[in-house]
Simulated assay, not measured.
Amino acid sequence: MGDNNVNLPPGFRFYPTDEELVVHFLHRKASLLPCHPDVIPDLEVYPYDPWELDGRALAEGNQWYYYSRRTQNRVTGNGYWKPTGIEEPVVSSTSNKRVGMKKYFVFHVGEAPAAGIQ
């Protein structure tokens, strides 16, 4: 699962649903409430290229998990992160209400366009 200094028992696998990520991890983190186990690290992701995330983010399969603050600067030393414009609601399985929004970003190698990357 990477080298992010999380002390987990052998065989532990982290495969939460989107709803579990939002309700049991993100909402608690945003409300400054404890998360047990506290396995998702804080990471300013935008200075990093995707290949630099291993060992910094919690990795499970082909997914990386981390908390990051919103920022307009998405430029790294080798490229930039750009939102795809795709957004998916995260819906509660019990109430069928939206509990969050899932947004997707893609990494482009090279210089960001002069007009910006928003």
Rank of each mutant, 00 (worst) to 15 (best):
D3L: 08
F14N: 00
Y104M: 10
Q72E: 14
E20A: 15
E19C: 03
P113M: 01
D38F: 01
L33N: 03
P16G: 05
G79V: 06
Y15P: 01
P10Q: 14
I86K: 15
A30N: 12
W51P: 02
Y66T: 02
T84R: 02
Y65K: 10
P50F: 12
P10W: 02
P50Q: 11
N96F: 01
S95F: 02
A115P: 00
D42H: 09
K103M: 05
P47W: 03
V45P: 04
V23H: 02
F12Y: 15
Y67R: 07
P34D: 12
I117F: 03
N78C: 12
P34R: 01
A57Y: 07
W64G: 09
L21W: 12
H36A: 08
F25I: 15
D49K: 07
E19M: 05
P10V: 08
Y15Q: 12
E52R: 13
S95W: 01
N5L: 01
D49V: 15
V45Q: 00
E111S: 12
D54S: 11
M101H: 13
P9C: 09
A112M: 07
L32M: 01
F12P: 00
L8Q: 15
E44R: 15
A112W: 04
G100W: 08
P113A: 05
L21S: 12
I117E: 03
S68P: 01
P16V: 06
H108P: 02
L26N: 07
Y46W: 15
R69G: 07
V23Y: 07
A112G: 03
P47A: 09
I117A: 03
N96M: 07
F105L: 14
G77N: 14
Y46F: 15
W81D: 05
F105S: 02
H27F: 10
S93N: 09
T17Q: 09
P16H: 08
D3P: 00
R56S: 01
K102R: 10
G100K: 14
N7P: 03
D38Y: 06
T94S: 11
W51N: 13
Y48H: 14
A30C: 13
H24T: 07
I40H: 04
S31M: 10
R98G: 00
K102C: 08
K82W: 06
N5K: 09
Q118I: 02
R56N: 01
C35S: 15
Y48R: 00
L32G: 01
E111A: 11
E19G: 05
S31G: 13
